[in-house]
Design a binder for these strands. Structure first.
Lengths: 120, 120
DNA sequence: ATAGCTGCTTACTTAAGGGTAAGTACTTGT
DNA sequence: ACAAGTACTTACCCTTAAGTAAGCAGCTAT
């Protein structure tokens, strides 16, 4: 995983923000370019790695696996691997991830509204 | 403002995502490192530039003004300047920004919940 | 007259995130 | 023997976001 300089100003600010602003805290878990897209896909149910890849054609394998791992580390998704060949791995929301669904739906609903009311 | 290469892969993907995923669309408006923090401050009412600066001690003026401008451009905040010396400029939610409040509250609520249930 | 307040702007540097492309392990189908 | 499928991993580079530091305009209080 990308290594991060422990004492960079940026890291310091990030920590501070996460402690001071609950919205920042959440953005750190579900924000960024790819996480919303992955989470959105998982909202319709468990998916295997290759399904996600196909569902999000523009994502690279590196990004997909990197963010899945992060979501796992944050306790939002669960990875289940069946020891068969070829491998069969599924990703799905954990209970904590499930509790995010209403939030994601609220976000998406606002997005749809704005989107239709002013074009892209 | 920062100029952006029109045809970069990243830009292309970003456009695609915003069209395909409503959550991404919203993240592009309110995500990133500083926007959530600024929006959170504005939720408690109109603030002048210097108040925001003091309320968010670790933000640089460059970041503050840059994101305020972006939020303005996205129609989420309104800037009002009184032509006095020293200048007096206030920033507040537009009606569209107001409509975001429930969403931000939902996000914050989830954040608080998670935060208390597993430490930072 | 000089420092201070306010709300910015600019030029430059660094750090983080993302993209490209290749490789790995292990088995089934041909 | 070799291609194909699955789920990754790795090394390297480029783009974008953020940080640093300085300056400006215009008035006011010392």
């Amino acid at each position: 995983m990308t290594l991060v300089k422990e004492n960079s100003t940026w890291n310091f600010n990030k920590e501070l923000s996460m402690q001071a602003c609950p919205v920042s805290f959440v953005m750190n878990k579900i924000g960024g370019h790819w996480k919303p897209i992955i989470l959105y896909q998982l909202m319709s149910g468990a998916k295997r790695y290759s399904e996600l890849k196909r569902a999000i054609p523009t994502i690279t394998e590196k990004m997909l696996i990197q963010h899945l791992k992060q979501l796992q580390a944050d306790g939002l998704v669960i990875r289940t691997a069946e020891p068969v060949v070829p491998p069969h791995v599924i990703y799905q929301f954990s209970p904590r991830g499930e509790s995010l669904k209403p939030v994601l739906n609220a976000i998406a609903a606002w997005g749809y509204e704005q989107w239709s009311s002013d074009g892209i």
